[in-house]
């Protein structure tokens, strides 16, 4: 097996007395989509922030393309990209202007053609000259995904990309993400509260609860393990039942 694009080992992060992440370990191979699931406060955002070099781990290690994202920040960030439902692009710039600025930051060759291709792929080419602040939520999400793919990343971190989208647009986004991942063989770390996202897009899922991994496997394996009908029921059971984390956690602790 080739070197993973992302390898997290025994990651631990404390904020004062609060343990945000406890012994989180997993790997993502090139071309694999790993879903990171959990309720608010489960530790997903802290894990994402640590991988992106924005949060220093208390202990443990993170290797992105074999490098430490905290110390080799620039080298790592040139080869990955991310999109979060909780950040925006400057609302007063035009769509193409926002993408052009990021294309220059990432030193994209033939940036105008690249922007045109991405806008076409996400079916928003007609919005090229639209003010970003005037886009709908669905259009805005697709613009963020264009930005996230502008540098042909080898690893993509998507933080709730379908949050606040209507089902039709969310479906479109899922299909595009899956298609791009297959065509370009990108490793993707995907967080979402939308179980349909997870079932459709992810090859494997890590379920986090209160900073710990309580389940790891394919969606079918997890559904079977918790003896539920679907991922939504698993989610509810894990979040509501405080005791469930201990037993499965030992059995299912990730790689």
């Amino acid at each position: 097996m080739s070197e993973p694009v992302l390898a997290v080992h025994e990651l631990h992060r404390k904020f004062g007395d609060h343990v945000a992440i406890e012994k989180l370990s997993f790997q993502i191979q090139r071309g694999e989509v790993l879903g990171l699931l959990g309720a608010n406060g489960a530790g997903k955002t802290t894990a994402m922030g640590s991988i992106l070099g924005m949060i220093k781990p208390t202990s443990g290690s993170i290797r992105v393309f074999g490098m430490d994202p905290y110390h080799d920040r620039i080298k790592v960030l040139r080869r990955l990209n991310s999109s979060s439902a909780y950040s925006d692009l400057p609302a007063n710039l035009l769509v193409w202007q926002n993408l052009y600025v990021f294309a220059k930051i990432y030193r994209v060759q033939n940036s105008k053609q690249k922007i045109a291709d991405l806008l076409e792929m996400f079916e928003i080419a007609h919005l090229r000259n639209r003010v970003t602040g005037h886009l709908s939520a669905g259009e805005n999400t697709r613009l963020h995904l264009c930005k996230a793919l502008i540098n042909d990343p080898e690893l993509l971190l998507l933080d709730e990309p379908t949050a606040s989208l209507d089902p039709e647009i969310a479906d479109k986004v899922r299909k595009i993400v899956r298609r791009v991942q297959r065509e370009k063989n990108i490793g993707i770390l995907y967080t979402s509260h939308n179980m349909l996202d997870i079932e459709e897009v992810c090859d494997r899922v890590l379920f986090m609860h209160r900073g710990r991994v309580v389940a790891d496997g394919t969606t079918q394996e997890i559904i079977a393990k918790f003896d539920q009908k679907n991922m939504e029921d698993v989610f509810i059971r894990i979040v509501r039942d405080g005791n469930i984390e201990d037993a499965p956690a030992k059995e299912t602790a990730a790689v």
Binding site: L52, M54, R78, K147
Partner: peptide, 10 residues
């Protein structure tokens, strides 16, 4: 809210 995009860019 663009600071996040900048901090995670090279």
């Amino acid at each position: 809210k663009n600071l996040n995009n900048i901090f995670v860019a090279p």
